[in-house]
Amino acid sequence: MSQTPQVAAPPAIPGAGGIVVNGLRRSFGDVRAVRDITFEARPGRVTALIGPNGAGKTTLLLMLATLLTPDAGTISVGGHDPVTSPSAVRRVMGWMPDALGSWNALSVRRAIEVTALLYGMTTERARERADELLSLVSLESLAQAPTRALSRGQKQRLSLARALVHDPSVLLLDEPASGLDPAARVALRELVRGLARDGRTVLVSSHVLAELEELADDAVYVEGGASVSAERLARAGAAARPWRIRSIDPAHLSWSIADLGVPTADVSTIGDAVLLPFASDDEAASFLAELVRRGVRVTAFAPAIGDFERTFQGLGDVDGAA
Protein backbone atom coordinates (compact mmCIF):
# COMPACT_ATOMS: atom_id res chain seq x y z
CA MET A 1 0.00 0.00 0.00
CA SER A 2 1.50 3.30 -1.00
CA GLN A 3 1.12 6.10 1.48
CA THR A 4 2.34 9.22 -0.20
CA PRO A 5 1.21 12.61 1.03
CA GLN A 6 -1.51 13.79 -1.32
CA VAL A 7 0.46 16.89 -2.26
CA ALA A 8 2.93 14.73 -4.13
CA ALA A 9 0.19 13.34 -6.37
CA PRO A 10 -0.62 14.86 -9.78
CA PRO A 11 -3.60 17.23 -9.60
CA ALA A 12 -6.94 15.78 -10.66
CA ILE A 13 -8.86 17.43 -13.46
CA PRO A 14 -11.24 19.84 -11.71
CA GLY A 15 -14.82 18.69 -11.83
CA ALA A 16 -13.97 15.21 -13.02
CA GLY A 17 -15.29 13.53 -9.90
CA GLY A 18 -13.68 13.25 -6.52
CA ILE A 19 -13.56 16.08 -4.03
CA VAL A 20 -11.85 19.40 -4.71
CA VAL A 21 -11.81 21.96 -1.93
CA ASN A 22 -10.24 25.39 -2.22
CA GLY A 23 -9.71 28.03 0.46
CA LEU A 24 -12.68 26.91 2.53
CA ARG A 25 -13.73 29.01 5.50
CA ARG A 26 -16.57 28.78 8.00
CA SER A 27 -17.17 30.41 11.36
CA PHE A 28 -19.88 29.96 13.97
CA GLY A 29 -20.19 33.35 15.60
CA ASP A 30 -16.76 34.08 17.02
CA VAL A 31 -15.56 30.51 16.62
CA ARG A 32 -13.62 30.04 13.41
CA ALA A 33 -14.16 26.32 12.94
CA VAL A 34 -12.62 26.16 9.47
CA ARG A 35 -10.14 28.89 8.56
CA ASP A 36 -8.49 27.80 5.34
CA ILE A 37 -8.76 24.27 3.99
CA THR A 38 -7.54 23.27 0.55
CA PHE A 39 -7.20 19.69 -0.64
CA GLU A 40 -8.16 17.14 -3.21
CA ALA A 41 -9.44 13.60 -2.81
CA ARG A 42 -9.20 11.60 -6.00
CA PRO A 43 -11.41 8.83 -7.35
CA GLY A 44 -10.16 5.32 -6.76
CA ARG A 45 -8.30 6.29 -3.61
CA VAL A 46 -9.01 6.44 0.09
CA THR A 47 -8.04 9.82 1.51
CA ALA A 48 -7.53 10.20 5.24
CA LEU A 49 -8.60 13.39 6.94
CA ILE A 50 -6.28 13.68 9.90
CA GLY A 51 -6.38 16.17 12.71
CA PRO A 52 -6.83 16.50 16.44
CA ASN A 53 -10.27 16.89 18.04
CA GLY A 54 -11.73 20.28 17.24
CA ALA A 55 -9.54 20.74 14.17
CA GLY A 56 -12.61 21.34 12.00
CA LYS A 57 -12.94 17.88 10.45
CA THR A 58 -16.65 17.47 11.15
CA THR A 59 -17.46 21.04 10.05
CA LEU A 60 -15.59 20.36 6.81
CA LEU A 61 -17.55 17.14 6.26
CA LEU A 62 -20.86 18.93 6.95
CA MET A 63 -20.01 21.42 4.22
CA LEU A 64 -19.10 18.60 1.83
CA ALA A 65 -22.36 16.83 2.75
CA THR A 66 -24.48 19.84 1.61
CA LEU A 67 -25.63 20.62 5.14
CA LEU A 68 -23.64 23.78 5.80
CA THR A 69 -22.71 26.68 3.56
CA PRO A 70 -19.12 27.87 3.63
CA ASP A 71 -18.39 31.53 4.37
CA ALA A 72 -15.79 31.53 1.63
CA GLY A 73 -14.04 29.13 -0.72
CA THR A 74 -15.20 26.60 -3.28
CA ILE A 75 -16.17 22.94 -3.09
CA SER A 76 -16.71 20.39 -5.79
CA VAL A 77 -18.09 16.98 -4.87
CA GLY A 78 -18.36 14.57 -7.78
CA GLY A 79 -18.19 17.56 -10.10
CA HIS A 80 -21.05 19.46 -8.42
CA ASP A 81 -21.14 22.44 -6.11
CA PRO A 82 -22.92 21.59 -2.81
CA VAL A 83 -24.00 25.20 -2.36
CA THR A 84 -25.58 25.86 -5.74
CA SER A 85 -26.75 22.35 -6.63
CA PRO A 86 -27.14 20.39 -3.41
CA SER A 87 -29.47 17.79 -4.88
CA ALA A 88 -26.95 16.89 -7.60
CA VAL A 89 -24.34 16.37 -4.89
CA ARG A 90 -26.75 14.33 -2.72
CA ARG A 91 -27.35 11.98 -5.62
CA VAL A 92 -23.68 11.02 -5.85
CA MET A 93 -22.55 11.44 -2.25
CA GLY A 94 -22.93 9.11 0.72
CA TRP A 95 -22.37 10.52 4.19
CA MET A 96 -21.81 8.57 7.36
CA PRO A 97 -22.07 11.07 10.24
CA ASP A 98 -20.15 10.86 13.48
CA ALA A 99 -23.42 11.12 15.41
CA LEU A 100 -25.08 7.74 15.35
CA GLY A 101 -28.67 8.73 14.82
CA SER A 102 -31.14 6.08 13.84
CA TRP A 103 -34.92 5.83 13.75
CA ASN A 104 -35.04 3.82 16.90
CA ALA A 105 -38.54 2.39 16.51
CA LEU A 106 -37.80 1.00 13.04
CA SER A 107 -36.21 -2.37 12.36
CA VAL A 108 -32.74 -2.45 10.87
CA ARG A 109 -34.10 -3.66 7.55
CA ARG A 110 -36.83 -1.03 7.51
CA ALA A 111 -34.35 1.74 8.33
CA ILE A 112 -32.29 0.85 5.26
CA GLU A 113 -35.43 0.45 3.16
CA VAL A 114 -36.76 3.86 4.19
CA THR A 115 -33.43 5.47 3.35
CA ALA A 116 -33.55 3.84 -0.09
CA LEU A 117 -37.08 5.18 -0.58
CA LEU A 118 -35.94 8.63 0.46
CA TYR A 119 -33.35 8.39 -2.32
CA GLY A 120 -36.22 7.90 -4.74
CA MET A 121 -36.02 4.13 -5.25
CA THR A 122 -39.12 2.07 -5.90
CA THR A 123 -40.48 -0.08 -3.06
CA GLU A 124 -39.24 -3.21 -4.78
CA ARG A 125 -35.77 -1.87 -5.46
CA ALA A 126 -35.55 -0.57 -1.88
CA ARG A 127 -36.30 -4.04 -0.55
CA GLU A 128 -33.62 -5.61 -2.76
CA ARG A 129 -31.13 -2.96 -1.78
CA ALA A 130 -31.83 -3.56 1.92
CA ASP A 131 -31.04 -7.25 1.45
CA GLU A 132 -27.80 -6.50 -0.38
CA LEU A 133 -26.64 -4.03 2.24
CA LEU A 134 -27.63 -6.17 5.22
CA SER A 135 -25.30 -8.88 3.99
CA LEU A 136 -22.61 -6.36 2.99
CA VAL A 137 -22.37 -5.03 6.56
CA SER A 138 -23.20 -8.42 8.16
CA LEU A 139 -26.38 -7.38 9.92
CA GLU A 140 -28.62 -10.12 8.44
CA SER A 141 -29.20 -11.74 11.82
CA LEU A 142 -30.39 -8.41 13.25
CA ALA A 143 -32.56 -7.42 10.29
CA GLN A 144 -35.78 -7.55 12.31
CA ALA A 145 -34.38 -6.02 15.50
CA PRO A 146 -35.35 -2.43 16.28
CA THR A 147 -32.37 -0.16 15.73
CA ARG A 148 -32.44 1.03 19.35
CA ALA A 149 -31.41 -2.51 20.36
CA LEU A 150 -28.15 -2.27 18.41
CA SER A 151 -24.76 -1.90 20.02
CA ARG A 152 -22.57 1.03 19.07
CA GLY A 153 -20.60 -1.01 16.59
CA GLN A 154 -23.76 -2.43 15.01
CA LYS A 155 -25.22 1.06 14.69
CA GLN A 156 -21.99 2.10 13.05
CA ARG A 157 -22.48 -0.63 10.44
CA LEU A 158 -26.11 0.34 9.92
CA SER A 159 -24.99 3.92 9.41
CA LEU A 160 -22.49 2.76 6.79
CA ALA A 161 -25.16 0.71 5.04
CA ARG A 162 -27.36 3.80 4.91
CA ALA A 163 -24.55 5.86 3.43
CA LEU A 164 -24.14 3.25 0.68
CA VAL A 165 -27.83 2.88 -0.15
CA HIS A 166 -27.77 4.82 -3.41
CA ASP A 167 -24.39 3.48 -4.50
CA PRO A 168 -22.64 6.87 -4.26
CA SER A 169 -19.44 7.65 -6.12
CA VAL A 170 -18.15 9.85 -3.30
CA LEU A 171 -18.16 8.60 0.28
CA LEU A 172 -17.68 10.77 3.36
CA LEU A 173 -17.00 8.68 6.45
CA ASP A 174 -16.76 10.52 9.77
CA GLU A 175 -15.02 8.32 12.35
CA PRO A 176 -16.29 5.11 10.75
CA ALA A 177 -14.33 2.68 12.92
CA SER A 178 -15.01 4.04 16.38
CA GLY A 179 -16.82 1.43 18.43
CA LEU A 180 -16.00 -1.43 16.09
CA ASP A 181 -14.43 -4.65 17.38
CA PRO A 182 -11.21 -5.82 15.70
CA ALA A 183 -12.99 -8.25 13.36
CA ALA A 184 -15.47 -5.56 12.26
CA ARG A 185 -12.57 -3.16 11.79
CA VAL A 186 -10.87 -5.56 9.40
CA ALA A 187 -14.16 -6.09 7.58
CA LEU A 188 -14.64 -2.32 7.33
CA ARG A 189 -11.13 -1.87 5.98
CA GLU A 190 -11.71 -4.52 3.31
CA LEU A 191 -15.06 -2.99 2.43
CA VAL A 192 -13.72 0.55 2.13
CA ARG A 193 -10.67 -0.57 0.15
CA GLY A 194 -13.01 -2.46 -2.17
CA LEU A 195 -15.20 0.61 -2.64
CA ALA A 196 -12.16 2.67 -3.59
CA ARG A 197 -10.94 -0.04 -5.95
CA ASP A 198 -14.22 0.26 -7.83
CA GLY A 199 -13.32 3.87 -8.58
CA ARG A 200 -15.10 5.66 -5.77
CA THR A 201 -13.68 8.61 -3.89
CA VAL A 202 -13.51 7.89 -0.18
CA LEU A 203 -12.74 10.52 2.43
CA VAL A 204 -12.26 9.08 5.92
CA SER A 205 -11.89 11.23 8.99
CA SER A 206 -10.48 9.79 12.16
CA HIS A 207 -8.11 10.59 14.92
CA VAL A 208 -7.10 6.97 15.38
CA LEU A 209 -4.08 7.13 13.15
CA ALA A 210 -3.07 3.48 13.31
CA GLU A 211 -6.43 2.67 11.81
CA LEU A 212 -6.05 5.10 8.92
CA GLU A 213 -2.54 3.84 8.30
CA GLU A 214 -3.95 0.53 7.05
CA LEU A 215 -6.82 2.11 5.16
CA ALA A 216 -5.80 5.24 3.34
CA ASP A 217 -3.71 5.95 0.25
CA ASP A 218 -3.44 9.69 0.77
CA ALA A 219 -3.74 11.99 3.74
CA VAL A 220 -4.92 15.51 4.38
CA TYR A 221 -3.76 17.02 7.66
CA VAL A 222 -5.98 19.58 9.29
CA GLU A 223 -4.90 21.65 12.24
CA GLY A 224 -6.73 24.53 13.91
CA GLY A 225 -9.15 24.73 11.00
CA ALA A 226 -6.52 24.87 8.27
CA SER A 227 -4.96 22.27 6.03
CA VAL A 228 -1.26 21.86 6.58
CA SER A 229 1.03 23.12 3.79
CA ALA A 230 3.09 20.72 1.70
CA GLU A 231 6.31 22.25 2.95
CA ARG A 232 5.44 21.73 6.59
CA LEU A 233 4.27 18.18 5.82
CA ALA A 234 7.61 17.35 4.25
CA ARG A 235 9.45 18.69 7.29
CA ALA A 236 7.19 16.85 9.70
CA GLY A 237 7.46 13.62 7.71
CA ALA A 238 11.24 13.78 8.08
CA ALA A 239 11.07 14.00 11.87
CA ALA A 240 12.51 11.25 14.03
CA ARG A 241 10.25 8.39 14.99
CA PRO A 242 10.64 5.58 17.51
CA TRP A 243 11.41 2.04 16.42
CA ARG A 244 10.53 -1.05 18.42
CA ILE A 245 13.25 -3.66 18.90
CA ARG A 246 12.84 -7.12 20.44
CA SER A 247 15.44 -9.76 21.07
CA ILE A 248 15.60 -13.33 22.40
CA ASP A 249 18.25 -12.09 24.82
CA PRO A 250 17.05 -8.70 26.17
CA ALA A 251 20.11 -8.26 28.39
CA HIS A 252 22.45 -8.61 25.43
CA LEU A 253 20.32 -6.13 23.46
CA SER A 254 20.39 -3.50 26.23
CA TRP A 255 24.09 -3.92 26.68
CA SER A 256 24.74 -3.58 22.93
CA ILE A 257 22.60 -0.46 22.69
CA ALA A 258 24.53 1.15 25.51
CA ASP A 259 27.78 0.02 23.96
CA LEU A 260 26.85 1.57 20.62
CA GLY A 261 26.76 4.94 22.36
CA VAL A 262 23.03 5.61 22.43
CA PRO A 263 22.27 8.07 25.28
CA THR A 264 20.20 6.38 28.00
CA ALA A 265 17.71 9.25 27.91
CA ASP A 266 16.65 8.18 24.39
CA VAL A 267 16.04 4.56 25.35
CA SER A 268 12.68 3.49 26.73
CA THR A 269 11.43 0.02 27.49
CA ILE A 270 7.86 -1.14 27.05
CA GLY A 271 7.35 -4.71 28.21
CA ASP A 272 10.04 -6.81 26.56
CA ALA A 273 10.58 -4.30 23.75
CA VAL A 274 13.01 -1.43 23.54
CA LEU A 275 12.01 1.83 21.85
CA LEU A 276 14.70 3.84 20.11
CA PRO A 277 14.24 7.01 18.01
CA PHE A 278 15.88 7.18 14.57
CA ALA A 279 15.92 10.28 12.41
CA SER A 280 15.58 8.30 9.18
CA ASP A 281 14.97 4.81 7.84
CA ASP A 282 18.59 4.78 6.69
CA GLU A 283 19.88 5.32 10.19
CA ALA A 284 17.60 2.59 11.52
CA ALA A 285 18.82 0.09 8.91
CA SER A 286 22.46 0.77 9.79
CA PHE A 287 21.74 0.31 13.46
CA LEU A 288 20.06 -3.05 12.79
CA ALA A 289 23.05 -4.20 10.77
CA GLU A 290 25.34 -3.23 13.64
CA LEU A 291 23.23 -5.17 16.16
CA VAL A 292 23.25 -8.25 13.99
CA ARG A 293 27.01 -7.95 13.47
CA ARG A 294 27.41 -7.97 17.25
CA GLY A 295 25.45 -11.21 17.45
CA VAL A 296 22.32 -9.76 19.05
CA ARG A 297 19.52 -12.18 18.13
CA VAL A 298 16.89 -9.65 16.94
CA THR A 299 13.32 -10.94 16.52
CA ALA A 300 11.58 -7.67 15.79
CA PHE A 301 12.79 -4.36 14.40
CA ALA A 302 9.99 -2.09 13.17
CA PRO A 303 8.68 1.48 13.36
CA ALA A 304 6.61 1.83 16.51
CA ILE A 305 4.29 4.32 14.82
CA GLY A 306 3.07 4.66 11.25
CA ASP A 307 3.77 7.30 8.66
CA PHE A 308 0.58 9.27 9.45
CA GLU A 309 1.32 9.32 13.13
CA ARG A 310 4.94 10.35 12.62
CA THR A 311 3.82 13.23 10.40
CA PHE A 312 1.11 14.14 12.87
CA GLN A 313 3.50 14.13 15.79
CA GLY A 314 6.12 15.82 13.66
CA LEU A 315 3.69 18.68 13.05
CA GLY A 316 3.45 19.21 16.78
CA ASP A 317 7.27 19.15 17.08
CA VAL A 318 7.70 21.60 14.22
CA ASP A 319 5.29 23.92 15.98
CA GLY A 320 7.13 23.42 19.24
CA ALA A 321 10.46 24.26 17.60
CA ALA A 322 9.08 27.30 15.84
Partner: peptide, 17 residues
Protein backbone atom coordinates in the same frame (compact mmCIF):
# COMPACT_ATOMS: atom_id res chain seq x y z
CA UNK B 1 -36.15 16.16 18.46
CA UNK B 2 -34.91 14.55 15.26
CA UNK B 3 -31.95 16.89 15.29
CA UNK B 4 -31.14 15.81 18.83
CA UNK B 5 -31.51 12.17 17.86
CA UNK B 6 -29.22 12.70 14.88
CA UNK B 7 -31.79 11.59 12.32
CA UNK B 8 -32.61 14.96 10.79
CA UNK B 9 -29.34 15.46 8.94
CA UNK B 10 -29.32 11.90 7.60
CA UNK B 11 -32.76 12.57 6.14
CA UNK B 12 -31.70 15.93 4.76
CA UNK B 13 -28.81 14.47 2.75
CA UNK B 14 -31.27 12.27 0.86
CA UNK B 15 -33.33 13.51 -2.05
CA UNK B 16 -36.34 14.71 -0.06
CA UNK B 17 -36.36 18.47 0.38
Amino acid sequence: GDRDAGTLATTQVTLVS
